[in-house]
């Protein structure tokens, strides 16, 4: 099974982006990896026309001759009048560089093996792809900001299925955004049985959550006016 590498064409001018996306659909059938088009913040490869800086953790694919001064040696070049074979070659080169980056990252950040009692804590806030932007996903991230939480705690408390939780934790690990530790490392790990049935669910926070739920389902607020 091919590995999936994420690519963003969002920085390209519209006409260039349309052409690239069309040819990408053709080229990716012969590429060494599977390509998924995503937002720049989540991309492993960012396609630019030479005028946009690309963050260091991604590989830049630069179309045209006008390379930005800041594009590193890691950048993959593609002529303006590129053909499908040239695109396939560029995609494969970019994929190899991404796989190398992943390998380097794995070596410099030893894999944090997650056991059943492992806890997960965010290193920094992350904007996730559209498939992971539900309120439940946000609640998981929020819970992970200041304390480590276990997988089973998330499944029990955050209205996500076990596969959804695994997918989320996998994505966070892939992006290097989560610290995995043995449960004992964090003093504030919630109890496994600390669910929304806990007393706080019936206190002020519980009433505030109910108000939020009601407010969402209510019609838009009337135009406010100052008293």
């Amino acid at each position: 099974m091919k590995k999936t590498v994420r690519i963003s064409t969002e920085f390209l001018p519209t006409s260039m982006r349309m052409r690239f996306n069309v040819l990408l659909n053709v080229a990716q059938t012969r590429s060494i990896v599977q390509w998924e088009v995503v937002a720049p913040s989540a991309a492993d490869v960012v396609v630019v026309d030479g005028m946009v800086e690309v963050r260091a953790s991604a590989v830049a694919m630069v179309i045209g001759d006008a390379a930005s001064r800041s594009q590193t040696a890691q950048a993959v070049r593609l002529e303006s009048a590129y053909s499908v074979p040239a695109l396939i070659a560029a995609l494969d080169l970019a994929a190899v560089r991404v796989l190398n980056l992943w390998d380097t990252h794995r070596k410099s950040h030893p894999p944090e093996a997650a056991g059943p009692n492992s806890t997960f804590r965010l290193k920094h806030w992350v904007a996730l792809d559209s498939a992971m932007t539900s309120p439940a996903h946000s609640r998981v991230l929020a819970a992970m900001t200041r304390k480590g939480v276990t997988r089973s705690w998330i499944v029990k408390n955050c209205a996500l299925s076990a596969p959804q939780v695994d997918s989320l934790l996998g994505e966070l690990q892939r992006r290097g955004a989560v610290h995995v530790a043995a449960e004992a490392e964090f003093s504030a790990v919630p109890r496994e049985d600390a669910t929304d049935e806990s007393p706080s669910a019936f206190g002020f926070i519980g009433r505030l959550k109910r108000w939020l739920s009601d407010a969402r389902s209510a019609s838009p607020a009337k135009e406010p006016h100052a008293l």
């Binding site: 309120p135 946000s138 609640r139 929020a142 200041r146 304390k147 706080s200 002020f204 939020l212």
Partner: peptide, 17 residues
């Protein structure tokens, strides 16, 4: 804004109110 408030509530370090 309701999304933001919900996120804030979820981020409460100790929901003891």
């Amino acid at each position: 804004m309701l999304d933001a408030l919900e996120l804030l509530v979820a981020a409460l370090p100790d929901p003891t109110y």
